[in-house]
Design a protein around this nucleic acid. Structure first.
Lengths: 171, 171
DNA sequence: GGTCATTTTGTTACATTATAACGTGACGTG
DNA sequence: CACGTCACGTTATAATGTAACAAAATGACC
């Protein structure tokens, strides 16, 4: 398993490049998930695989009910809870992130490492960059520590305008 | 208007002290809001004032429908949208924050200054500390800048265990 | 005071997001 | 092949949040 197709951006963890090979991108995510599940003894069942694929195909945050709609297009219409159960599993495995500020889900770019991610969310085009920024994490840990607060997790979601949309706005 | 009753904790922006004069705390928030609205030419109407009072009385994040229930106890049961409209106004004015990770609302401790807050949220007791931490903000601004991303706002919500609950757990 | 524009609220209906409860089937293990 | 566990199906409902439009309150101006 190579990650080369997803790591060829100039800065680490930036926005997906427009025009990248997205079909490949989805396929990589699926096969990586299969490999990790095999390692971990977790079961990547059909519906879980389908939900993971749909999350990745969108390549932007997607809502649970949007996933449901897409599943319905493929012939079956599971109950909402089936989608949420699949998403819960995928989040436990670290294959998917949830954006609390949007009630939406997003494929994780680094499912192999246990990490707390941060997100840059473009208000204009909806695209998202996943970060693993140590300075942000350190600043949080430090500030919490000074308050005597034991950190278990965090939600860091930064709204604004992505580089592409800024360029488009200037034109 | 003095802020002394809310700024007498040993570290800045920490958790509210247990046993503080909460009635005073609510009254201060209300009178400060009234003063700011007068300055700004904004109208702190009855329902807005009531919602603000209820948010402060809880002194922990409170849901929109919990507010609705409490209003119903006081005789009237407005439609949900009335509560959301009041909350929208209070957020515009900076009197109230919303916790995206909890779908809940919280009185702002510094309504006079325009700021982006961060939050420490205790999983155990539900109490919340509001922060205005420059290192966290700087780290976010810096990382976003390196990606060419223009920051408009952020959600920073840190889950974990507050000092009081840690002490209780050790006992 | 009366008129007007604007803001706020009321009313009704609905949309969106998420979970509870319980039964059934699939799967692996001894 | 019996058992326990995990996953899924089914039904119903909870929780959160908005749209659309009418009515009332407010403030500015004449």
């Amino acid at each position: 398993m190579t990650k080369s197709t997803r790591s060829d951006t100039k800065s680490d963890a930036a926005f997906p490049r427009r025009g990248h090979d997205h079909h490949r991108c989805v396929a990589d995510a699926l096969s990586q998930a299969e490999a990790l599940c095999a390692q971990r003894g977790a079961r990547l069942t059909e519906i879980r695989k389908q939900v993971l694929a749909l999350v990745w195909e969108s390549h932007a945050p997607i809502g649970a009910y949007q996933i449901l709609e897409k599943l319905a297009e493929s012939g079956k219409r599971p109950a909402p809870i089936a989608v949420y159960r699949a998403l819960d599993f995928l989040m436990e495995q670290g294959f998917v992130h949830r954006l609390a500020s949007r009630n939406a889900f997003l494929g994780c770019g680094h499912p192999d490492t246990n990490h707390q991610a941060q997100f840059l969310i473009c208000d204009s085009c909806g695209s998202v960059a996943e970060l693993a920024d140590s300075r942000i994490v350190d600043a949080i840990a430090d500030r919490a520590g000074r308050s005597g607060f034991a950190v278990a997790g965090h939600v860091v979601e930064i709204q604004g305008t992505c580089p592409d949309c800024r360029k488009a706005a200037h034109a």
